[in-house]
Design a protein around this nucleic acid. Structure first.
Ligand SMILES: [Mn+2]
Ligand SMILES: [Mn+2]
Ligand SMILES: [Zn+2]
Ligand SMILES: [Zn+2]
Lengths: 145, 145
DNA sequence: TTTCTTGTTGCGAAAATTCGCAACAAGACG
DNA sequence: CGTCTTGTTGCGAATTTTCGCAACAAGAAA
């Protein structure tokens, strides 16, 4: 696993939460399984190691770790929910509806858009992890609208 | 109901689809129930009129009418899916995570953002109906981050 | 140590959503 | 009219996700 375990544990305990074996297992699973991991994939993975760990706990922990900004949540092209490690700097995705390819966007590309919303509507957009759907370079010409 | 029934019917038939009583009922329901209508609300409404109309059909028709761009789909603050009439001009929403208030955004505010994505990433963002989450004017001062 | 508080889990039930399939119905075509 | 094709539905089962609640466990307090 590639996440800073001790730092995360400190952060959780500092907020009054507990570092349980279940939470560690689930976090490790997301980390190992890569980008855009579904709850079911997490369950399959951890269930092999800890057979009593329930589905409800998987859903609850994924939710919880997202609230703690340790995980990030994202809607995929098919509408389902997935998770991935959050990382220190936010990033976003361009998802192609034709080929399901993923492009990663740096957070910086949203700065001017957020400023505009702030100025025109006095609304502070929370952009920790957005996905924009559309059509990528390769699919633009081949696919008719 | 306030939607142009004959125009929609023509559009569907032209594409080889059929205008069934179920589809008409469901479309009327979304239209009457207003913005951000959940599948369950649609089902409750139409089920009183047509008791044999099944939940599966509600989900299927909402999906179908969204593909046909007659309805628009939107994620609400709690993560659930909702639908509303699409209208000729796309629009978007600012959803406050504190008070659940809704601000409607004209499509024009996304033009420069789309142009940037197109120019920098050669990616054409499909923005028929987006929701951005964050904090509105009233909630920005009262709520601490 | 014992007691208390509170966060956390497992379980099973409930609710929400999707799926497969047979039956139906609209329309084309003869 | 009868026949075919194909889009559509209802039903029930399967799957996914949420909920309620009792039991558990970590840590603070006594
Ligand atoms: Mn990501
Ligand atoms: Mn809308
Ligand atoms: Zn593509
Ligand atoms: Zn607000």
């Amino acid at each position: 696993m590639s996440h800073n375990t001790t730092e995360i544990n400190r952060q959780l305990r500092k907020s009054g939460y507990r570092v349980t074996p279940q939470r560690q297992l689930i976090l490790d699973a997301v980390c190992q399984l890569g980008e855009h991991v579904t709850p079911e994939a997490v369950y399959d993975h951890v269930h092999r190691i800890a057979p009593t760990l329930s589905r409800a706990t998987v859903y609850r922990v994924l939710h919880f770790l997202t609230e703690q900004r340790i995980l990030a949540m994202v809607y995929m092209a098919d509408g389902r929910l997935a998770y991935e490690m959050a990382g220190p700097e936010p990033h976003h995705h361009l998802v192609c509806r034709s080929c399901d390819s993923l492009l990663e966007l740096p957070h910086s590309v949203l700065r001017s858009f957020r400023r505009t919303m702030d100025a025109q509507y006095d609304f502070e957009i929370d952009v920790s992890h957005l996905s924009f759907f559309g059509h990528c370079t390769d699919c633009r010409d081949s696919a008719g609208a």
